[in-house]
Nucleic acid binder design. Structure first.
Lengths: 153, 153
DNA sequence: GACCAACGTTGGTTGCACCAACATAGCCAT
DNA sequence: ATGGCTATGTTGGTGCAACCAACGTTGGTC
């Protein structure tokens, strides 16, 4: 038979930060994906759009570096963005190795819409935390990331 | 040309907790996988072993619930554990739907060894945090998880 | 005895991260 | 200037973790 406590995770796992982290991130990703797929996109698409809106036109390699996405994955996501009319890709006249990628108005709109949906996700994710703890949590995450990926954060 | 700041993530992403969380978890998973593969195992294998060591013999379904692993994935991981002599699986005489899974001495040893390697990973992961912040970080993660998966934590 | 729920198992799908290789094009030293 | 190194976009493929659907078997329940 299965008591409710049957579902309880082993102490050894419950006290391992990396395990908690992975578990929570999985849950967060699940929430975020709801928002993304509702907007007809994926994480990559949103990241790329945001990078373009914020930093202006850029090459695919630069976009990949900024968002932490592999060059090859940028290609695929960008293909879909272009197909949906959210971005444009044309060769860079100044450096014929590169493409210049730009956001379209529709892309900006999409980024903003998805951003709002994502804000609601944050709200749901951090629901049990008071403002002070939310700030601390974000701060700790940033601190850790800055240590492990210096220059990127 | 590409300045160093070229690699910097967009502000909109850097201030989104779920994004930071996913990013950091990815890094943590990377570190953890080093430790796991060095021990010749995967995350699932370790979780299952720990659950067995801590909670004693159990059915596959119960193990899956405790570790947050799908029934079908438990089967695969368990096959490998059995093949390596780290666990044993035999039909439950009391309920012929179930299997009773037990750890072998080799399995306990493996769990302990992997656990030590995983401890070093935590050390590396939380390196930039002082003890107080480490405690707070773990506490926040636990708090959030308890909210989103009540009963499991 | 009939129905529904749980179990183990098979097989397949998805998203994300990553790597190798290639052709083209720019850069820089000698 | 030329030769060698690096960057870029692209293709194709790998691995892992999470998940879902279906099936046959078995237990429990009404």
């Amino acid at each position: 038979m299965s008591t409710p406590a049957d579902d309880r995770a082993p102490e050894r796992l419950r006290t391992t930060p990396s395990w908690l982290l992975t578990r929570l991130a999985d849950h967060a990703a699940h929430l975020a994906r709801e928002a993304f797929t509702a907007a007809g996109a994926g994480r990559y698409h949103y990241a790329l759009l945001v990078a373009l809106v914020e930093g202006g036109p850029a090459s695919q390699a630069a976009l990949g570096r900024r968002c932490g996405i592999d060059r090859s994955d940028v290609v695929a996501a960008l293909n879909e963005l272009v197909a949906r009319g959210h971005a444009e890709r044309r060769p860079d006249p100044a450096d014929r190795r590169r493409n210049v990628v730009t956001v379209t108005p529709a892309g900006r709109e999409q980024a903003e819409r998805t951003g709002k949906a994502l804000d609601e996700v944050q709200e749901r994710l951090l629901a049990p935390l008071d403002p002070e703890d939310r700030r601390r949590f974000t701060e700790l995450l940033t601190h850790l990331l800055r240590h492990h990926a210096p220059g990127r954060f």
